[in-house]
């Protein structure tokens, strides 16, 4: 008696008439050997089987899973995006409605100086002028506005908000010390003041497992500008003398301390 194995599966995949005939009959009744093989063997039936089995239970809504972050890149254990609590939005909306940007936003503005840059690459609107505000959310849900260079606790989450003079695209990077920048995500930018929000509603950067100096850099590109990762890295590299490169870079530095949420 023949049971399923790798060679039998190959024959079946090739629609070998003898193999098909045999296994069509053989698999019509339970066979522990074949079932054991199928349980551990990877083949195109896996997805179908799982889809079928997982359809047995009542459907869950994605919201119940607490998932708002689309993983477009492999996440590192030490850095996770974390959605802010609902009250953050209210807090932020209220703060901004009443705010003067000069108070709420903590800019390291690189943009305006580049309005007259010599970059003459892609056509399109001028460079984006960009400002960045960062708020730390503690484990208790408390929020505190940060100045660049501020101390933050590793159990806090950084929430980002930007002001852009026009719409475009931005790439968010993190950089620890002298290590190379690491891309955290790509975001559409709208003109005006908005939370940094991508495809995924992403709004926060977890500091879990971090310690020491950490720099967040937002690299913005106007619609006509090339906006690849390579362009963003080039813009970051040219941060000190940006005229030759497209892209507007805004940085925000924090010093992560291990331990619990710092007092406001």
């Amino acid at each position: 008696m023949r049971h399923l194995d790798a060679s039998a599966m190959s024959e079946l995949a090739a629609r070998d008439p003898q193999a098909v005939a045999w296994f069509r009959e053989h698999l019509a009744s339970p066979c522990e050997a074949c079932e054991t093989f199928l349980a551990t063997h990877t083949d195109p039936l896996d997805g179908r089987t799982d889809a079928l089995l997982l359809a047995l239970a009542p459907a869950r809504k994605a919201e119940e899973e607490g998932a708002t972050v689309v993983p477009l890149r492999t996440a590192t254990r030490s850095r996770r995006f974390a959605p802010p609590p609902a009250r953050y939005w209210g807090w932020m909306a209220g703060a901004l409605a009443a705010s003067v940007l000069m108070v709420v936003l903590v800019p390291l503005v690189k943009g305006p100086a580049r309005r007259d840059t010599g970059w003459t690459g892609e056509k399109g609107p001028g460079r984006i002028t960009l400002e960045l505000a960062v708020v730390a959310r503690g484990t208790d849900g408390g929020l505190r506005r940060l100045d660049s260079g501020a101390d933050v606790a590793s159990d806090e989450v950084l929430l980002l908000r930007y002001h852009a003079t026009e719409s475009g695209t931005a790439l968010l990077y993190q950089q620890r010390g002298h290590q190379p920048p690491e891309l955290l995500g790509r975001f559409p930018l709208d003109a005006g003041t908005h939370d940094l929000e991508g495809l995924d509603g992403l709004a926060g950067v977890s500091l879990e497992s971090d310690e020491g100096h950490l720099s967040l850099a937002l690299v913005a590109f106007a619609p006509g500008e090339p906006a690849s990762e390579q362009d963003a890295l080039a813009a970051l590299e040219a941060d000190g003398s940006p005229d030759a490169r497209p892209g507007t870079v805004v940085r925000f530095d924090v010093r992560v301390q291990s331990g619990q949420t710092l007092a406001p």
Binding site: T36, A39, T40, L45, D46, T49, L53
Partner: peptide, 18 residues
């Protein structure tokens, strides 16, 4: 769970072959 899944896969494979 894997064992049960194997059983279901056997059923599906048989259906495909049939």
């Amino acid at each position: 769970l894997e064992r049960f899944r194997g059983r279901i896969k056997r059923e599906l494979l048989q259906r495909v072959l049939a």
